[in-house]
Design a protein around this nucleic acid. Structure first.
Length: 349
DNA sequence: TATCCGTGGGC
DNA sequence: TGCCCAAGGAT
């Protein structure tokens, strides 16, 4: 296949069709890094408002590094994959403390930073520092496997290595950053996962998968995700216009976000079946169950959560280990999952 | 290496 | 409705 022709067609297309996005108007590694982390597994339409918020709130890496983690998580709230936000903050601190606020230029150095992997390191190195490093993301994998008719399973490392090798053979000596962005943009807007725009494709006559009419089967992904069912029962405990909440930790979902007192069960339970904390049994005369919410269904990548909220009003202050009382104004500011946030908003309305 | 981590949109 | 999947990284 004519490599030079692929490259020139792609660059011409990009020059005429690229979307005008804020991070395309700069080489500032801080902004490029921020946009790349936000866009990990995230569509531009979903990430863009968050990018603008972060830039406004944290105009440089020193401000981000100095910010409390709860505030960073609150700004990230709703974007998902919250490890990204915690690593974003960690990375900002590392760069301020160990690199005097300046991003390292070598891909190998970038790779050592938290939250920066093979893709993001190549993106920053090429876009911010002009390094000839080929990015391999979902878009690049899709464009290359289709164009070259690669029918192998992309779950295997071998296939990814093959795609990477092709990407490296394509990347231009001059303006590798533009090539990287061009091929990603082409994958995002033309060579889309569903309904690729083959009728207007610049590679129409050379795309192996189109010629063989197997575009819809490429890239091949063998593994399918199993979703685990979970049953959450939240006790929304109130006293004197305050609510009892705690920060989630451990290896579970929503690490770093705040929630109410959680009683997880193996199956759907009624209130009477729940294993209430001993404090509630001890002070049973000091609280009433006011309302039980309808079931909230929350779908994540590997889980489906069936959730109910039990609103309990206390006439006496209690103490439960690891939980703290928060006023409604404080609750509003705490970082929370969309599930909790949705419940609170429906309650207000 | 396989599995986990969110949320929203498309069909 | 249920399933796919989106500018990945960590473990």
């Amino acid at each position: 296949m004519n490599i030079d022709r692929i490259i020139s067609a792609l660059l011409l297309w990009y020059n005429q069709n690229k979307r005008d996005l804020p991070w395309r108007q700069t080489r500032d590694p801080y902004k490029i890094w921020l946009s790349e982390v936000i866009l990990q597994q995230t569509r531009v339409e979903q990430g863009l408002p968050y990018y603008l918020k972060f830039i406004e709130q944290y105009s440089n890496i020193f401000k981000l590094a100095k910010a409390p983690i709860d505030e960073v998580l609150r700004t990230w709230q709703g974007l998902g994959y919250y490890t990204r936000a915690r690593n974003l903050h960690k990375c900002a601190k590392t760069i301020v403390e160990q690199y005097k606020g300046k991003f390292p230029e070598a891909r190998s150095e970038l790779l050592k930073l938290p939250g920066i992997g093979p893709y993001t390191s190549a993106a920053i190195a090429s876009i911010s520092f002009g390094k000839k490093e080929a990015v391999v993301d979902g878009n690049v994998i899709r464009v290359i496997t289709r164009l070259f008719g690669i029918e192998e399973d992309i779950s295997s490392l071998k296939t990814i290595k093959r795609v990477t090798s092709i990407a490296e053979s394509l990347i231009t000596n001059s303006n590798p950053d533009i090539f990287n962005q061009a091929i990603m943009e082409y994958g995002a807007t033309q060579c889309k996962p569903n309904k690729p725009l083959c009728e207007e494709c610049i590679f129409m006559d050379i795309c192996i998968s189109r010629i063989k009419n197997i575009q819809h089967k490429i890239p091949l992904k063998s593994k399918k995700i199993k979703k685990r069912k979970r049953f959450f029962n939240y006790l929304v405990i109130r006293f004197n216009n305050r609510m009892l909440m705690k920060k989630r930790n451990g290896n579970d979902i929503w690490h770093g976000l705040f929630e109410f007192l959680l009683l997880e069960a193996e199956s759907e339970k009624d209130f009477m079946e729940l294993q209430l904390p001993s404090v509630l049994k001890k002070f049973s005369n000091y609280w009433v169950l006011e309302t039980i919410s309808p079931s909230f269904k929350h779908v994540l990548t590997h889980q489906i959560i069936d959730c109910k909220f039990y609103e309990i009003k206390f006439s006496k202050s209690i103490t439960i280990e690891n939980y703290d009382w928060f006023s409604y104004e404080e609750v509003e500011i705490l970082p929370k999952s969309i599930l909790i946030d949705r419940y609170l908003r429906e309650k207000i309305n």
